[in-house]
Structure formats: structure tokens, C-alpha cells
Simulated scan of single mutants.
Amino acid sequence: MPKRLDIRLIAPSGYADDHAARERGVERLLAAGHTVHGADVLERVMLRFAGTDAERAADLNQLADPGVPLPHLVMATCGGYGAISLLDRIDFDGLAARFLDESCVLVGHGDFTVLQCALYARSAIGSLHGPMLVADFGAPYLRENTWRHFWHTVLSPRTDMSWTCADDQRDLLVEGTLWGGNLSALCSLVGTSYLPRIDGGILFVEEVGEQAWRIERMLYELKLAGVLERQRAIVIGGLGGQRVSEYDNGYDIDHALQRFGKACNLPILRGLSFGHGGDKWTLPFGAHAVLECVAGTATLSAFDYAYAGAANGGPVASA
């Protein structure tokens, strides 16, 4: 009989206000044969957050307690804002010691990027930039591609994805450490010890609801901070939600990326779907990756990352 996953929910940022979606998310995980712990975090509300800073930090710090069994998978319920206020409260040394000996995979996106960066920078803990309980697994329509690729990545030591690039994209082949996430979350950590210093990296970024000029400004922030000079390529996901005003004179996200591309002197690939949005790939933060583009088709292969299939004889999930 294949072994199922023990999943623990955490709520490090905003609260889950869509009751139907959160119930659907839990029900789908249970229907796939998994065990879900920590559903009580779905009930917490404090202002716009899923509980106090202390409560939300405790969700993570319990994973450092040797007396608490580690689950196979830790899943963020939703994003929003709030993870940055937890960083001074997290037991990074305790988490590093615990994760060194046992296999446990964390997953989330959006504001969760703050924790992914901090965990990698301070504890060398990799994670998955992927779907979350409410918006993804609790959506009225479950995206089959998102579901299948997520479980494949959770349970396998390697994951692959491919997509179509722009017609004018030059061929390239690079490899390095795969990392990144939500652009504004990354920029919030510039100048702190919580932003990983990764040399020879493949940086992936996405954003939602920010104007084109804000996107360009945040990319420049990473450039001027010296982050981009250590990277080998940038993979850009969804950047939806921009509004072009009369004052912009036609300046939009395409112009912003064209302008920035000339300034950063790095290959920039667009078209991969991750982070916010419907269908999404799951990207292993901290994995070794190979990025290739040939004749307008890009492929990204990631391996050497923590995955739940390595734990307890290799659990298998329904996908």
C-alpha cells in the first residue's frame, strides 16, 4: 500500500477569508489520501493577518521542536502580507538542525517568498515555490496541470518544465542555483541578512498588481544592490494587473522589460507560469538547475533538492 503524506498547514501572512475555498482545499487533500494537520490556523484573524506575530511565528518554530513529529509537507494557506514581521522571531538554528536529519518540504508563493529567502539564507533550507491551499487547491476549478506537476515535484528528485519564449529570444544554456519568487518580497529583504547571497544563480521573479514603472524600479533595486551581477539569467513569470495611464504615453510592461534588459546585461526569459495566476509550475528554491532555450522553446530542469519522496520509504501521492 503506497504511503500517503502528512501535511501541516501554516498561516504566516494574511488570513483565509474565503471559507468555501479553504474547505475545498482541505477536502481535496483528504480525498487524495493525505492527512492534514493544523487546520486551526484557518480560523485565526487579527487585523489583516492570520493571527498575531507570535502565533504565526510559532507555526514555523514548532518544526524546530524535536518533540513534535515533522510532517512530510508544510503548506502555506495563503499569501498577502505579514511574513517579514516574523523574521526576528524564527528559530533558524533549531530549524537548521532539525531539517539536517529529517526530510520535510515547505511550499508557498507570494509573501511566502520572504520566508523562503530567510530559511535558505540563515538555515540552508530549500523549499518549493508553488501552489497554496486556498487560492490554488481551494479554487472552484482545480487546475490539473498545477496539481500534477506539484505532486511530481514534491515526490521526485528531479522536475522539468518547458514553455514557448518570445520569437526574438536568443538561444542559451546556463546552469546554477534556482531561486527567487515574488519581486516586491525579494526587494523588501535587500540589505538584510535574510536575502541569500547566491553566485551563479538562475533568478525567477513574478508579481501581480504592480504598475510597469514599479516593476522596472524594483528590478533596478536588485541590480543596484549587486544581486543581479551574480546571476546567470532571469526567468520572469506573470506580471499581471498593470494599468496604462494617459501619462504613460504607451509605456507598458513590455517597454519596462525592454529598457531594463538593455541595462542589466543578463538573458531574460519570459513565458513561464508560476506564482500568482491559475496554471503554475512548482519551482524548487535552492535546487541546482539547467536552463536552456533553443529555437524559441525553453526548458528548465531542476534537481538535487529536498523532496518528500525521500522520507519514510518514499510516500506516494495521488496526482
Rank of each mutant, 00 (worst) to 15 (best):
138 G>D: 02
96 A>P: 09
216 E>D: 13
284 P>W: 09
142 L>W: 01
48 R>W: 12
213 W>E: 12
227 V>Y: 02
140 P>S: 01
207 E>F: 04
238 G>Q: 14
4 R>M: 10
2 P>C: 11
187 C>Y: 07
243 R>E: 14
144 E>A: 11
6 D>W: 01
303 F>A: 14
134 V>M: 12
127 S>W: 03
123 S>L: 02
195 L>S: 05
173 L>E: 10
26 V>S: 03
173 L>D: 08
172 L>D: 04
25 G>Q: 03
52 T>G: 14
49 F>K: 15
88 D>W: 09
175 E>T: 07
241 G>M: 04
222 L>N: 09
62 Q>C: 12
227 V>F: 06
259 R>K: 13
99 F>P: 07
271 G>T: 13
101 D>S: 08
136 D>P: 07
212 A>W: 01
157 P>V: 00
87 L>S: 03
64 A>T: 00
247 Y>T: 15
133 L>F: 04
314 G>W: 04
104 C>E: 02
182 N>S: 02
205 V>C: 10
44 R>N: 13
231 Q>L: 05
59 D>A: 10
278 G>R: 15
94 G>S: 06
278 G>V: 05
252 D>Y: 11
36 V>W: 01
210 E>I: 10
300 L>H: 07
285 F>H: 10
133 L>D: 06
145 N>D: 14
19 H>D: 13
1 M>N: 14
289 A>L: 08
132 M>V: 10
25 G>P: 09
298 A>V: 08
128 L>H: 03
11 A>L: 06
254 D>C: 07
189 L>H: 06
98 R>A: 13
210 E>Y: 13
189 L>M: 07
288 H>F: 13
217 R>S: 15
98 R>C: 11
107 V>S: 11
305 Y>A: 06
60 L>M: 11
120 Y>C: 08
124 A>Q: 08
209 G>V: 02
216 E>T: 09
173 L>P: 00
161 M>C: 09
292 E>D: 02
304 D>K: 06
24 R>A: 10
154 V>A: 01
85 S>C: 05
178 L>W: 01
218 M>Q: 15
101 D>W: 12
138 G>S: 09
85 S>Y: 04
245 S>Y: 12
151 W>G: 02
190 V>H: 04
81 Y>K: 13
52 T>A: 11
51 G>F: 09
227 V>G: 02
63 L>I: 01
22 R>H: 14
294 V>Y: 14
82 G>K: 01
62 Q>F: 07
240 G>M: 07
83 A>Y: 05
127 S>Y: 04
299 T>D: 13
67 G>R: 05
129 H>F: 08
309 G>D: 03
245 S>D: 12
206 E>L: 09
5 L>C: 06
151 W>M: 02
316 V>G: 00
